[in-house]
């Protein structure tokens, strides 16, 4: 079964764009959360990751900070 993937991002950060591109290229569905527009979600991201840098990926509960391609692949099993 496909894993639930959330991407906490801002529209201006290059690594957020890259991370989302990477997911799309690999046919991974994800929920994009723009933390610059949604203050509550920004707080949720800070709480989950313990930091304020974007992107943060939540892959079925596994938190990955930054566009860490290897860890993302591992978490998704691709």
């Amino acid at each position: 079964m496909a894993k639930t993937v959330k991407v906490y991002s801002t529209s201006t950060c290059p690594y957020c764009i890259r991370a989302k591109q990477f997911l799309t290229e690999n046919n991974i569905q994800f929920e994009n959360i723009d933390v610059s527009a949604d203050h509550a979600k920004a707080q949720e991201m800070i709480k989950k990751s313990g930091q304020m840098g974007v992107p943060v990926l939540d892959i079925e509960g596994e938190i990955i900070i930054g566009f860490d391609k290897e860890r993302i692949k591992q978490a998704l099993g691709i």
Binding site: T10, S11, T12, C13, P14, H39, V54
Partner: peptide
Amino acid sequence: KNKGLTYCATCDGPLFRG
């Protein structure tokens, strides 16, 4: 670093709205 301190206003600026 990344806990309020950043070197990239373009990337992280929007997190500091308000």
